[in-house]
């Protein structure tokens, strides 16, 4: 049985085959492991690979698979969901996204308003922090997608700015 995931934007594949003694043969990138699998009542699983034991906890969050091992959480996504969390990918110059989850504190512009690059569009607040979401380019506020009091996720689109000619791709 073959399983493929995306990890940090790269495809990773494991080939699993059951063995008659209850163990599994797992092949990853040409590396072959014989894995003894010891499930734990709390949902974790203890794997013994080449005599070394590792307890891994796996949880699902939507399409993502989160595996915790030795204090580190690894995020795997299905191969079809390219990019997963889009870490490091810059949003388009014409959209403004939330840098952190939070609540919209103040909206300082209205649709149709002309704004300058760097101008504060709205204030986002979470916990004790307030951050400004600023216009990514000179342009016009084409759409405001949130209002005061809305709770937004990290990466959620907040506004669309239609950039002036020639400034669209300067990021």
């Amino acid at each position: 049985m073959q399983k493929t995931y995306l990890y940090n934007g790269r495809a990773v594949t494991v080939d699993l085959a059951p063995l008659p003694d209850g163990r599994w043969r797992a092949t990853i990138d040409g590396r072959e492991h014989i894995a003894a699998v010891q499930p734990r009542p709390d949902g974790g699983v203890t794997l013994t690979l080449e005599g070394e034991r590792r307890t891994v906890y796996v949880e699902r969050a939507g399409v993502e698979r989160l595996a915790a091992l030795d204090g580190i959480v690894y995020t795997l996504s299905p191969p079809e969901a390219r990019g997963g969390r889009r870490r490091g990918v810059r949003p388009g110059a014409n959209e403004l996204t939330a840098q952190m989850p939070g609540q919209i504190r103040e909206v300082l512009v209205s649709e149709g308003q002309v704004v300058a690059r760097g101008q504060t569009i709205l204030l986002l607040e979470a916990m004790k922090m307030e951050i400004r979401a600023a216009a990514p380019a000179d342009g016009v506020v084409a759409r405001l997608l949130v209002k005061v009091g809305d709770i937004v996720e990290r990466g959620q689109r907040l506004a669309e700015i239609r950039p002036n000619e020639g400034t669209e791709d300067d990021a």
């Binding site: 995931y5 940090n8 690894y74």
Partner: peptide, 15 residues
């Protein structure tokens, strides 16, 4: 780097 054990555990859970 993704430890092989983490990948195996995820794949077994998904099976």
């Amino acid at each position: 780097p993704l430890p092989d054990g983490a990948l195996i555990a995820v794949a077994l859970a998904d099976l």
